[in-house]
Structures are given as C-alpha cells and as structure tokens.
C-alpha cells in the first residue's frame, strides 16, 4: 500500500524540491533562533538529522505494529510526541555517558529539538503518505540534510550581514525571512530535475 516511488527519489526530493524549511515551513523557530552563527547552526542541523532518523524510524514501527493493529489512530499525536520526547531524553543521556565529545557539541540542542515541528511534521507526513520502512528512512535522512543545508546557508549569510547596515526594523527576523524567501525561491528552481519513475 506504500506509494510506488523510489526511496532515492524521495531522498533527493526531500532535500531540494520539498525542503523541510524552504517548502514545508517546518522547524522555523529553532531555524531562526540558532542561525546567527555558522558553527552552532551546523551543530543543530546535524542534531536534527540524527533525531529525525532515530525517532521517525521508531514512530514508523510503532505506527505499523501498535497503533494501526489496535485502532488507536486518534491517539497518534500523543503517542508520537511522547515517543519523540522519550527518545530525545534517552539520546541525551546516552550521549552524555558514552560520547562526551559529541554531547559537548550537540547535547545542548537536544531538548530544543523535542518541540521542533520538523520532527513531528516528518512523522505525520510519513504516516499520511504511508511510506515503507526504506522510504521512511531515506525521507528522514533527506529531510534532515535539507534542514541542515537551509540553516547553514542562512547562518553563513547572516554572519556576513552582521557587518551590513540595515534599515531600522529589518534587522533580526525581518532580514532572516527575506533571505529565506530568496533561498526558497531558488529552491523552487529545482523542481523537475529528475523524472519520478
């Protein structure tokens, strides 16, 4: 019942033609808040990708083996968000214990990611589109990479803009949205670069 679309196509499409931030508007709050410095932005992007893959593979399994068979679709929002919160918490503890360097870099972002709409958004998209396991995996990998690309591009541009003089009121979120809009416009140009089948 999963759509007959190659996982590779889904992967490329989720980075370029249906980018999480630039086309689907997901994960904007942290995208705006953490994009003033390239290094932190890159760290957040990687953390988001990691969380996307782990939590949404888990959510895929839970949807197909628990929610669907038991007819609990109406509770899916609660179950998904709880799973996301739980996995992020476990991930943070795991990283703190066994990968202290990684934890020093990414750990601080993890609690922020729990409420990042990109994670829950990806879960809901994959449920609606009824993706298979492989499609889910590549969808989330691509979405994470796409989100990461968007935030490092914004951060790189903002670092340069830090020295520019902006009209009053435009500094901060205003200019960030304008830059994002232009990037989104550029990404629209990616549509149709490859055939679906």
């Amino acid at each position: 019942m999963a759509p007959n679309i190659s996982p590779l196509v889904i992967f490329i499409a989720s980075i370029f033609t249906s980018n999480m931030v630039l086309a689907n508007f997901l994960g904007m709050c942290s995208y705006l808040a953490i994009s003033s410095e390239y290094k932190t932005a890159s760290g957040l992007g990687k953390a988001v990708t990691l969380v996307l893959i782990i939590t949404n593979v888990a959510n895929w399994a839970i949807y197909h083996y628990v929610i669907e068979p038991l007819g609990l679709e109406y509770l899916q929002y609660i179950i998904f968000i709880m799973v996301i919160a739980a996995i992020v918490q476990i991930l943070e503890l795991f990283m703190d214990r066994y990968m202290p360097d990684l934890h020093a870099n990414l750990g601080v972002f993890l609690p922020l990611i729990t409420v990042n709409c990109a994670i829950l958004g990806a879960t809901l998209f994959q449920v609606i589109r009824n993706y298979s396991f492989l499609q889910t995996l590549l969808f989330n990998l691509g979405s994470g990479i796409g989100w990461w690309m968007a935030i490092i591009m914004l951060a790189a541009i903002r670092e340069k803009m830090g020295k520019a003089k902006l009209p009053p009121g435009l500094a901060g979120p205003g200019i960030a949205f304008l830059i994002t809009g232009i990037m989104a416009l550029a990404f629209v140009g990616f549509s149709g670069i490859f055939p679906v089948q």
Partner: peptide
C-alpha cells in the same frame, strides 16, 4: 490509484 510525486 498510482504514484504521484509525493504519494499515491
């Protein structure tokens, strides 16, 4: 039914 760009 058939495959679209994003889903069935």
């Amino acid at each position: 039914e058939g495959a679209g760009l994003w889903g069935t």
